[in-house]
């Protein structure tokens, strides 16, 4: 199982802050995004291609990162701190 987290407008628009799901070997974050887009109707319009950041186990990464059991993946809107 992996944990997927959503923040800020992603959390509000998707109506969830985290979910857990099982993934197959070799699944990348890009694969996970495709899977979530097929399962959650509004996902594709909320987490739009190239308009989000992703973090794996609390470090920014890219969509090619391969996931393992126990990982925490976060889909982050472009950040606006400071």
């Amino acid at each position: 199982m992996i944990t997927v987290k959503f923040f800020a407008q992603f959390r509000e628009l998707l109506g969830t802050e985290s979910l857990e799901l099982a993934i197959g070997d070799g699944t990348t974050i890009a694969d996970l995004r495709t899977l979530l887009a097929s399962e959650i109707s509004e996902f594709d319009s909320v987490v739009r291609p190239n308009e989000f950041l992703c973090a794996l186990n609390h470090t920014l990464t890219d969509q090619h990162a391969v996931l393992s059991d126990g990982d925490e993946v976060a889909f982050l809107p472009p950040v606006t701190g400071g």
Binding site: F7, Q9, A55, L76, V79, T80, G81, G82
Partner: peptide, 10 residues
């Protein structure tokens, strides 16, 4: 910080 640190303003 404004590009990489996970903070969001509402």
């Amino acid at each position: 910080l404004k590009r990489d640190v996970p903070l969001w303003k509402k």
